[in-house]
């Protein structure tokens, strides 16, 4: 009954093509088929956001997205978040400066949420990065480090 299908996905700018089973979850496609283990699997129910990736620029939960649903999409993962020369992006730098990573398990999802926000256009009124980040769970930090990083990013945006 189960038959495989071929999908074509651009992952961090690189075209990938694979024969997959319909029940393959996007998080497993990334972690196991492509070996991109930076995307973390934590709650497996869409509650925590540790597995957040950008699907056509939009933050989605890769443990709730079948790989088939990403067919034809442009996907960004944490492995593609740094600058091309391997140095930290502006978002990553702000988090680093503000002492964010504690256990680090939520960090890739949080980074992708912040990168996703930076890419949204248009942005409806009232949407803030802080309200977006309310989607993702961190059990170590009390979120203050993230808030400090948001302030730093806002300051940087104000003083380019």
């Amino acid at each position: 009954m189960t038959e495989s299908l071929r999908i074509h996905i651009k992952v961090n700018g690189r075209p990938e093509s694979a024969e997959i089973a319909p029940n393959l979850m996007l998080v497993d496609f990334l972690r196991e088929h492509l070996g991109l283990q930076g995307t973390k699997l934590a709650c497996d129910q869409g509650a925590c956001g540790a597995c957040t990736v950008l699907l056509d620029g939009r933050p989605v939960t890769s443990c709730l997205t079948f790989a088939f649903a990403a067919d034809g999409a442009d996907l960004q993962t944490i492995e593609g978040a740094s600058r091309d020369n391997g140095t930290l992006s502006q978002v990553q730098n702000a988090l680093h400066d503000c002492g964010v990573p504690q256990c680090g398990f939520c960090t890739p999802g949080m980074v992708m949420m912040m990168e996703g926000f930076a890419r949204q256009d248009p942005l409806p009124p009232g949407q803030t990065l802080e309200t977006w980040m309310n989607a993702n769970l961190c059990r170590c930090s009390g979120y203050q480090g993230f808030r400090r990083a948001l302030d730093q990013l806002a300051n940087e945006a104000g003083n380019p």
């Binding site: 283990q37 993962t77 978040a81 740094s82 930290l88 990553q92 680093h96 990573p101 680090g104």
Partner: peptide, 15 residues
């Protein structure tokens, strides 16, 4: 900053 912070931020950290 956390000595593993860079790896945690770039997805290179392994658990």
């Amino acid at each position: 900053a956390d000595v593993n912070g860079h790896d945690k931020l770039t997805g290179a950290a392994r658990y």
